[in-house]
Amino acid sequence: MATSNSEFEISKTEEEWRKVLTPEQFQVLRKHGTERAHTSPLDKQYGKGTFVCAGCELPLFSSETKFNSGTGWPSFFDPMENAIATTVDKSLFMTRTEVHCSRCGGHLGHVFNDGPKPTGKRYCMNGVSLKFVAD
């Protein structure tokens, strides 16, 4: 698994990322920030389509795997094949599994073991790190 920005298929300098991302997208995708809960319109997006990385447009999640977790962030129970990478995040005095885009390394959110069947996973994503492409 890639551990630094230079190991991803898409690699840009901070300046290059700032030119293509909004300030909020940059803070979340490149600086591991978190958007405030209940602020993303994608949390309530239940149309048919694909959620892609806001940084590189890699397809990440199908709308068929989206569910309402009640957390205020878009949540999914299964990513698309080879779409994500994970690392251990020990910030905020806890250990969590951080989820990244496998192509550009952008921070997407975290995955937890309290999701619905069939996976039991809850991929809790920052809406600002995603774009929705309708079918």
Rank of each mutant, 00 (worst) to 15 (best):
I84H: 07
N82W: 02
N68L: 02
R122A: 03
L60C: 06
A134Q: 15
A83N: 06
C104S: 08
G55N: 10
T50V: 15
G106H: 12
N82P: 00
F61M: 03
K90C: 06
V133A: 10
C101N: 09
N126C: 00
N126E: 01
V99C: 08
G109H: 11
G106C: 12
F51P: 08
V88L: 14
S102A: 14
S129M: 09
F76P: 03
M80Y: 04
D78P: 00
M80P: 05
S102C: 07
H107W: 08
D78L: 01
I84C: 08
S69Y: 00
C124A: 07
V88G: 14
L60H: 08
R122E: 07
S69I: 04
T95H: 08
E98H: 02
L130Y: 05
D114Y: 06
T71I: 04
A134H: 11
F61K: 00
K66Y: 02
D78K: 05
T119C: 06
K66A: 05
S62A: 01
A83Q: 07
T119G: 06
K90N: 15
S69F: 00
N113Y: 14
T50K: 14
F51N: 09
V52E: 09
R96H: 05
H110D: 13
T95M: 12
T95C: 08
E64Y: 00
I84T: 13
P79M: 00
T119S: 11
G115D: 14
F67T: 02
L92A: 15
T71W: 02
T65I: 01
T95V: 14
P74V: 08
R96D: 08
M125Y: 09
F61D: 03
V88D: 15
L58S: 13
F93D: 15
T65S: 04
G72T: 13
S129Y: 10
E57L: 05
V99K: 11
G127V: 06
E98A: 10
P118Q: 12
Y46P: 11
S69V: 04
G47H: 12
G109Y: 09
G47I: 12
